[in-house]
Amino acid sequence: MPPWSSPAWPHLRATLLALHVLSLVVLSLPDAGAVHNRRRWQTANARADLQQTAARLTAWGIPIDELELKRRLWAMGTAYLVVQRPLVLPFVWYGRLTGSRQGWRMFASPQRHPAELHVDLEGDGQWEPIYRPHSDRYAWNREQFEHNRFRKFLGRFARGFIARDYQQTARWVATKAAREHPEAPRVLVRLYRYDTPTPQQVAAGETPAGRYEHAMRFDAEALR
């Protein structure tokens, strides 16, 4: 007799579905990666969030500075994780096996200090741009760089810089550029960081002045 024709089946199925629902809810709670990620806490975005929140609380009669707020939030996160970790534990294998996990942080703290990937080649002793995001003039390899997965991946360097990921990316980009531009002696890959202008700055016609970070120069010949 197949199990689903047994009178106990509806109860067994109801139990399994209750466990699935529980798993869905528990696994969707913010985890340590969201609560205690030191790299994220140190980003310009997170610092701005802390500053603004501290200023707002102070204005509401709860005097606190950015550092103290950060310390308290970290402590609250620690207390939360003491509860969250054992709650999640029984469901981790199920989430891993079936992929039934949920942790959607999209736009949680929108980027206000983006970093763009810029690629240049050396020519006549000067650096010539070959790629700038959203530029029709410097559009080398645009099809790949502007695919949503690539854009999302590059955008992560502004949110929580991972040196190894960046170095591998810069090397891959430089290798491709070197192979497709056999005349270029050197390739420069770097991030251009700037503060997104406010609506008022845009209305006043101000353009953001940025700065370059994590510049990596490659000998093109060695990469070909």
Binding site: R56, S109, Q111, G155, T196
Partner: peptide
Amino acid sequence: LYKLSPVWVPGGSHSALWWVFQEPTW
């Protein structure tokens, strides 16, 4: 629950979507 930034929450600037729309990634 994740959107606790002062650009989202009540009492804040509600400027979140302005920043999202300006981000070169998106």
